[in-house]
Design a protein around this nucleic acid. Structure first.
Lengths: 159, 159
DNA sequence: TTGAAATTGAATATGATTATCAATTGATAT
DNA sequence: ATATCAATTGATAATCATATTCAATTTCAA
């Protein structure tokens, strides 16, 4: 398992895998080979993946894994708080590793690159605006769509 | 920081209806009774409606109107630039009249009230954040979810 | 009034996700 | 190890919102 450069979320998902095992035990569930494969593939992807993409990766290891199992496993990861589902207007969910910090997203409309960011001043101003309208905000969604640096340059070439 | 009430749409949608007629003529399409009913109901609603809600309203005028026609008409309104579709995480689209000004949304998670707002300072900061990550933003989505003034007070009572 | 072209409504298709269910597998007690 | 029993799997069917198909109807221009 190539560990790659230091990811933002702990290394290789060791910690995460332990947390999942704990959740599974605590819930009286069982560990399975498929589940391990899927979780492995998910954390190895290191990006926002769809179930379809994940299934493809998993099937490179074991072609017999069914789509339903991937859906079920991702649901489990979300329930256990280790992943979260996002909608970027594509009609299908993308999953990301659940970090401790809240963040929003920059999405390149050409190549699909997704960058996470956080900005406290924007968050603070959202609070102000909400209060001004009598709202108390519990959560929010902010997505900025446009072209990433690379696609601004090579906008003419194919993706 | 210009922030104000949502754009005042012409009363009765006179202007809008004319614009739609123009679009229809220019595209070589035809006007129909159902279409008029649906557009009428949409602009009379004066709020973010789903196709389902709209169909119900339309059927009070003519029970024989089909759902497909509502879908088709809303698509037409969106194409013509007179309405826009929004996703507030409910799994079905809500349509709003297309004003001239860009705006974002405050959504009450209890009663479903949707308030439009605009805030130039937030928009400006979004630009800054994007540029910092090498992105050029073309559009964005910002939704603040929480409780509206009324629901904060009467959170115990039924909606 | 006519006739081609657009529209309608019902039914069917679609695409993502969830639920069903018989067969299989994993954890545990023996 | 083995038996046991609940959890899991994979295929398939079911959902749900929306799109599409198609025969019947309606619109509009000539």
């Amino acid at each position: 398992m190539s560990e790659g450069p230091a990811p933002a979320y702990g290394t290789g998902g060791q910690k995460v895998r332990a947390a999942l095992a704990a959740y599974i035990a605590q819930k009286g569930l069982k560990g399975t080979r498929q589940r391990d494969l899927i979780v492995e593939a998910f954390f190895a992807a290191r990006r926002h993946v769809t179930v379809e993409e994940l299934l493809e990766r998993v099937r490179q290891q074991d072609p017999r894994v069914g789509a339903a199992t991937v859906y079920r496993t991702m649901k489990l990861l979300v329930e256990s708080g280790l992943a979260s589902a996002r909608q970027f207007g594509e009609g299908q969910a993308r999953y990301e590793m659940a970090g401790d910090r809240h963040h929003d997203h920059l999405i390149c409309t050409r190549c699909g690159t997704i960058v996470e960011f956080e900005n406290d001043r924007i968050e603070a101003m959202q609070e102000v605006v909400a209060r001004r309208h009598g709202f108390s905000v519990t959560h929010h969604k902010m997505e900025l769509y446009g072209l990433c640096r690379n696609c601004q340059r090579h906008g003419d070439r194919k993706v």
